[in-house]
Design a protein around this nucleic acid. Structure first.
Lengths: 221, 221
DNA sequence: TAGATTGTTAATCGATTAACAATC
DNA sequence: TAGATTGTTAATCGATTAACAATC
């Protein structure tokens, strides 16, 4: 793998999509794929795919294309899937529990070690085999087990404070599901947010545009 | 509001963030904000904010800045928050139920009318006051009530098929929570996806980079 | 009025696309 | 070998930043 000078976030955000598409191709028994073939199925240009992969080195063979297996493997490596990252969940409300029960952490190279909550009804129980401890024990757990990531699903009012605690406890990243824009002063700690609200409002904008468009067409056919 | 020629997706994706930040400012009792002030708190340049807003028209006052209330109002209007959009949920598994119970649809201008599932244990029940019907009844419901959006939380294997059914039933948009990249042939129908996996893998990449960086620093201090 | 800050055009920067030699 | 397709550089396009006149 090439020493990656500086990869733009646009490229980084496409890497998981490549990985996902290659996994699907693999399941479908496809052995080789060209940049134009992959581009067609993903809605990207062949040129862009080659340019993206070029950031990390040459994974293909001229005149042949890319081997699905090994390209998937390489991109997985770039994404850090085999690094054995660990995470804990903060907050075991509806959303926290749903993610614990549904999300395939291991397919993404993560091990979910524990969950934490302040609710005495939850503390001491298990969710899908994952033990729930009291939030007071979070710091000790995270630092002794060197946990990489904290998944935040606490109420929005507690989000920033809990984020700060995670950072102080030594996590490398926060996966933020609260609808709050965490600020993280600590350099070297990454915050990645899933903002449901932003996503729905984007959809709202797009269908509103569509509505206006259709109305205009009715008036001026 | 200006006739918006063609607004780039980069701008569109920032609109919900503006809306969110303006709401927070409003709650904090802030009355006016300058582009540089807003930029500082959001990590954007003042120039970019003015350029973004310029896509839709002049909302500020020279020498003064922007009134938080009215700017929030205007952006909400652009996003279609007051259009009374409606939606239904497909799939009432852990994730579907968690979203129904947790997500503040009304704050985003949506009314959640019903949920659908094939599981006989769910059909006929309510989740947070939302009635659950059998999926067979979805088409009739969506077309008679002119539902705007279908939220997909069905198992991945059923995703594409259920997406197709929603489109045929006449929705304008699909909010996709399955880890499947829906293809939608129908022009005028919008698909907006929340890919947990892509988000976590991006985080995985970023912390892996950080790990490499720190290791290098240890070796060459 | 003087100061501040927008609206808006121009300049710069970065990302995408095109092109083509290298080579499997 | 001929054909195909990559790796990689150059050209283009679009998004961000800078600048400044307009004006509150």
């Amino acid at each position: 793998m090439k020493r990656n000078a500086k990869v733009s976030t646009a490229v980084i955000r496409r890497l998981p999509r490549y990985y996902r598409h290659l996994s699907e191709l693999q399941e479908d028994g496809v052995v080789r794929i060209s940049s134009s073939g992959l581009g067609k199925s993903m809605g990207l240009t062949a040129s862009q795919i080659r340019q993206d992969l070029f950031c990390f080195g040459g994974f293909g063979q001229q005149g042949y294309g890319y081997k699905v297996d090994s390209l998937k493997e390489e991109i997985g490596e770039i994404l850090g899937i085999s690094r054995g990252h660990t995470l804990v969940v903060l907050g075991t409300g509806n959303l926290g529990r749903a993610i614990i029960q549904n999300f395939r952490f291991s397919s993404n190279g993560f091990r979910l070690l524990a969950a934490f909550d302040v609710n005495p009804d939850m503390v001491g129980t298990q969710v899908a085999g994952v033990p729930v401890y009291h939030t007071d024990e979070m710091e000790a757990f995270v630092s002794s087990r060197q946990v990489d990531v904290g998944l935040l699903t606490v109420p929005i009012a507690a989000a920033q404070q809990m984020g700060d605690r995670l950072v102080r406890a030594g996590v490398k990243g926060i996966w933020n599901f609260t609808n709050y824009e965490l600020t993280c002063s600590q350099p070297g700690v990454v915050v990645e947010s899933v903002h449901f609200s932003d996503s729905l409002l984007t959809l709202s904008y797009l269908i509103s545009q569509q509505e206006v468009l259709e109305k205009t067409q009715e008036e001026h056919p």
